[in-house]
């Protein structure tokens, strides 16, 4: 028993404090089974999107008129669509579009939302007032309607759809960051930071900003999910990805007409949208719990 204890103590001593901290964080993450499964699915999805040509059994654009609307089989795992294309291959290639849309539009929203929110919340005053009224105006539109209008103005296409979705998501981030900054700027550690001679920008970036990260992480994962749905919606309505590039939204839209005869055309991309969105949300929750130092 005593030997065992000694061994454990030695083991602990070998690790540096930083390594122990990361181990603790990893352990906490692994305890969250749902998040692990979700993370696994996301990794799988990203992997197959990156290596789509190798993973997909067929060319997503290849038409085979001898196999129109075939139901799922060993040859075509998810069946074929109305012009004989392999749906599984199209779903794999469609993942590229969806993931890209989710990540890039959220990156746009974060890139604009974080600095604007930090400045509005920290300096308050007239500038804050103007920024907040603009975000109010943007938030007063239903988000899909606004995305639709922006995409229509910018022109159809994936890039423009991502920009439009990014703009629609931005006000949420501005509001969230600003609210967090407002809560933190009155705390004593911010005053203490100022009292130790730090300049404003350093107080904002080093002391306030990291404290806003946890809620932002959750909001960002939610936003990725909703960006994927928005992109699918825009593609469904013909303003996102243009044919023949496969996209989940466009596939869903195309499959709608054959719902009675060949439901798998719409069901396959639908299931993938659902799984991706829910996985990202669960994964985001797991990451938040992992990062919170108080949950050790």
């Amino acid at each position: 028993m005593a030997q065992l204890q000694e061994a454990t103590i030695k083991e602990v001593k070998v690790q540096s404090p930083r390594a122990t901290m990361y181990m603790g964080m990893l352990k906490r993450f692994l305890q969250n089974k749902l998040a692990v499964v979700a993370g696994f699915f996301i990794v799988l999805l990203i992997g197959s999107a990156l290596f789509a040509p190798a993973v997909a059994p067929y060319d997503p654009g290849a038409q085979d008129y001898t196999k129109i609307m075939n139901s799922p089989s060993a040859e075509h795992w998810m069946g074929t669509d109305e012009i004989g294309r392999d749906i599984f291959s199209r779903v794999i290639f469609g993942a590229r579009v969806s993931l890209q849309a989710g990540l890039i539009s959220v990156a746009i929203a974060l890139g604009v939302g974080i600095p604007v929110g930090l400045i509005a919340g920290y300096y308050r005053g007239f500038l804050d007032e103007i920024i907040m009224r603009i975000t109010d105006a943007l938030l007063s539109f239903p988000s899909l309607v606004l995305a639709l209008a922006l995409a229509a103005v910018l022109g159809a296409g994936l890039e423009n759809a991502m920009i439009a979705i990014g703009i629609v998501l931005t006000p949420n981030f501005i509001r969230l960051v600003r609210a967090e900054v407002l809560a933190h700027r009155e705390r004593e550690y911010v005053e203490a930071a100022k009292a130790s001679g730090l300049r404003d920008w350093r107080v904002i970036l080093v002391h306030i900003f990291p404290n806003t990260l946890a809620p932002m992480m959750v909001q960002a994962t939610l936003a990725i999910a909703s960006a994927i749905i928005s992109e699918a919606s825009l593609s469904y309505l013909g303003l996102g990805t243009q044919p023949p590039t496969p996209s989940w939204g466009a596939m869903l839209s195309a499959g709608q007409g054959y719902l009675a005869d060949a439901p798998w055309i719409a069901i396959a991309p639908g299931i993938f949208i659902f799984l991706t969105v829910i996985s990202i949300n669960l994964f985001g929750d797991g990451v938040r719990d992992m990062l919170d130092p108080k949950l050790k």
Partner: peptide, 28 residues
Amino acid sequence: NEKQMSKIRGNEISMIFQEPMTSLNPVH
């Protein structure tokens, strides 16, 4: 001005606050 003052703050004049629970940044 602000720049000259921030050289004195924390360096020549320091301050400690009432609430030790909230005077340290929780994330660092």
